[in-house]
């Protein structure tokens, strides 16, 4: 089992991004995904900046993959995806079918992120024929659905495609043409003033009874709670999952990666209690629910 660090979904300053990936160099993480997946207006790094970061991390032995924008609305955004796909050095994680097509048309291998809908082995097989090397399962696909998919994939004789599971962090739940951060500040999206930069881990949305619901992150909604499947690594391993993904957060990401590394190396399943989190999706329950270890 390898560990990956997903693309950072938030809008951090250039300095914070640089400082974060400076640390990542020394974390026990195998694969690092880089790039802007949420909003094309955010430009702390151009393609060159990401490539520089990618080379820095690759020099430290990390496999680096460049992630593309999830919601594409304008031709200019397709152009950005095209330049990423044609970078000539690093594989791309497609967050949308435009990126899949651009890679496939060029005969380039690609990965897919959790926002590309792969719910069955037949879809996996079709995308494998187009060049798919690794896929991240949709977060709402439960354990049993994943296990059945992987069994079916074996029956269909799909050549090696790696499977990655979103295992820790705030779950990407939805995307919109609208910017919810701008809306919360009564600003039009065109003049958003980059308010999302003030919320390095998103802006909490609660019910009128103060129950946590979601986090607003620009045009994206994330789960209010963090997803935590760290303890489920043995069953993932048994069904053939290759990679567990940790999603960046401003504080504590390195600790989560180090803890998972330790659990994997020492064969332990107990995750540190302070990591908290929910796990309902894995057990075919509402995503915001938590199934206690005793019942899991």
């Amino acid at each position: 089992m390898r560990i990956s660090l997903g693309a950072n979904p938030y809008y951090w300053s250039m300095e914070d991004v640089a400082a974060f990936y400076e640390q990542v160099q020394d974390w026990p993480v195998d694969i690092v995904y880089l790039g802007e997946t949420v909003c094309s207006k955010r430009r702390p790094y151009g393609l060159d900046g990401w490539i520089d970061l990618a080379r820095m991390l690759a020099a430290k032995g990390k496999e680096v993959v460049l992630s593309t924008l999830t919601l594409i609305e304008a031709r200019s955004e397709v152009g950005t995806v095209k330049r990423l796909v044609e970078n000539g050095e690093f594989m791309v994680e497609a967050s949308d079918m435009a990126a899949v097509q651009l890679a496939a048309e060029r005969g380039l291998p690609f990965a897919t992120g959790p926002s590309v809908n792969i719910y069955n082995a037949q879809t996996l097989a079709t995308l494998q024929r187009a060049g798919l090397q690794r896929w991240v399962a949709p977060t709402e696909l439960p354990r049993d659905g994943l296990a059945a998919l992987l069994e079916e994939a074996e029956k269909l004789n799909i050549p090696a495609v790696e499977t990655e599971i979103f295992a820790y962090g705030r779950i990407p739940l939805a995307y919109s043409a609208r910017c919810f951060t701008a809306r919360a500040h009564n600003l039009p999206k065109d003049q958003c003033e980059f308010r999302c930069q003030d919320y390095p881990e998103g802006l909490p949305v609660q019910s009128q009874e103060d129950q946590g619901f979601v986090q607003i992150n620009g045009i994206q909604l994330q789960s209010g709670e963090r997803y935590n499947l760290l303890s489920q690594w043995p069953e993932m391993q048994a069904m053939g999952v290759n990679v567990m993904r940790i999603s960046p957060q401003p504080i504590g990401t390195g600790e989560v990666i180090a803890a998972l590394r330790g659990m994997l190396d020492q064969g332990r399943t107990e995750a540190p209690a302070e990591f908290g989190g929910v796990n309902g999706y894995w057990f075919a329950q509402p995503g915001m629910d938590t199934v206690p270890a005793a019942e899991a």
Partner: peptide, 21 residues
């Protein structure tokens, strides 16, 4: 639908059932 259709799991996050599944 204010969200991008086919890529919204708000409903399964809260209820366990979504448009996709």
């Amino acid at each position: 639908c204010v969200m991008v259709e086919g890529r919204c799991t708000l409903s399964s996050y809260v209820t366990g059932e979504s448009p996709n599944t």
